[in-house]
Each structure stands twice: as C-alpha cells, then as structure tokens.
C-alpha cells in the first residue's frame, strides 16, 4: 500500500515538471539582470509570458533583428502582461550571461520585456522542460499554462520568413485574454538547444 501511495505521489510531483498546457505552471524564484527577484506565484492575477532567450542563437536573432520579439513584448506589456525573458544557459556554456551583458543586450536590441531573468543554475529551464531558444510559455492569471511551444510556425533562421508567419503567441494571448479557448495551445518549439550544464 505504502509503495502505491508513494508512487502516486511521485507521479503527481513528476507531472508538474513539464510545461503542459492545462497544468499549473511550476513556481520559481529567480533574480533578474538588475538583481531583483521574481517569484512566479507573486504574479498570480496577471498574464505571464516566459520567453527562453539566447542572443547568440540565430533563431533568436531572427526574431530580434526582425523586431518581431520586441513588437510582441511591447504590444502585450502595454496590456499589463508580465513578459519574462529567461536565460538558462549554464555557466561556461554558450549564451551564459552576466547581469551587465544581459542589460547591454537588452538595450542594444531594444527589448521591451518586463525583466531578463538569469536562470544561472538552469532550474527554471529544467522545471519547464524548455528545450530551445526561443521557446514560449503563456500562463494565465490562475497560474495555469495556456500555451507552450514556438514563437511562430516558420522554423527557420531567415528573417524573410517573419512576414506571413503565424505568430502563435499573439494568437494565444488574443484568444485567452478574450476569454476564448486557445486554438493552437501546444506546438513544437524550434531553435537552438538550451545550453544545460
């Protein structure tokens, strides 16, 4: 009996480890590039977007050089959405960032994110099972994941592909914040691998 209970408990705990649509988003507390700590639970009541970021990745660069990511960040943070860009690259790995560099990059690219989180020990990335940069998770005010996957439907590094692409994140936020179910709630994220330790 005890074994069964144990297993069930372990299973429940295990289920929280991926950003599955319809499931509660795993909580975290991480410092941003200005040293301010961000705890997901404190954003209850707000819409939250998590964006995995690595400016050395050509797929990320497509969205930033093409102003696509910043446009989304701007559009939605103006509507009160908390947009958190997360750098999960481990120390010594490509894309790992110091607070100074993260701020310089944000300035250079004109990032309109609420904050750049430095997930130095990759804990947030692993808790969400994030695999690529970019990768997006949208969380509703109740703390439940409503979208998880790619930024758009064109898995390339080519800026020219931004035109005519379906922006899944805009679509998901428009529908979800309008009280509608999200049509495309789960997609395969595309990009460079998250550089885990």
């Amino acid at each position: 009996m005890r074994v069964v209970l144990f297993t069930l408990l372990a299973l429940c705990a295990g289920a929280a480890h991926a950003a599955d649509v319809g499931k509660p988003a795993p909580d975290f507390a991480v410092a941003d590039s200005n040293g301010k700590s961000h705890k997901l639970a404190e954003y209850k009541g707000k819409w939250v977007v998590l964006e995995w970021l690595n400016h050395g990745c050509p797929y990320v660069r497509k969205h930033y050089d093409g102003q696509n990511m910043q446009a989304s960040q701007k559009r939605w943070s103006e509507k009160g959405v908390v947009w958190l860009s997360i750098i999960s690259s481990a120390p010594g790995k490509q894309g790992h960032s110091t607070p100074e560099k993260a701020n310089a990059d944000a300035k250079q690219y004109g990032s309109a994110a609420t904050a750049i989180l430095l997930d130095t020990d990759s804990k947030v990335g692993l808790a969400y099972g994030a695999r690529t940069t970019p990768e997006i998770v949208v969380i509703n005010p109740e703390g439940v994941v409503v979208y998880s996957g790619a930024m758009d439907d064109k898995p390339t590094t080519d800026q020219a592909d931004l035109k005519g692409a379906t922006n899944y994140v805009d679509a998901a936020l428009t529908e979800a914040m309008g009280g509608k179910p999200v049509t495309t709630a789960s997609t395969k994220p595309y990009g460079c691998s998250v550089k885990y330790p």
Binding site: C57, P58, T157, C192, S193
Partner: peptide, 12 residues
C-alpha cells in the same frame, strides 16, 4: 541549400 550546423552553438 540551407542548413544549420551545431556543436554547442549553432550556425545557419
């Protein structure tokens, strides 16, 4: 032809 070549970092 277009491709992505990766080691740890990736270059299209």
């Amino acid at each position: 032809v277009s491709w992505l070549v990766c080691q740890e970092d990736c270059i299209p």
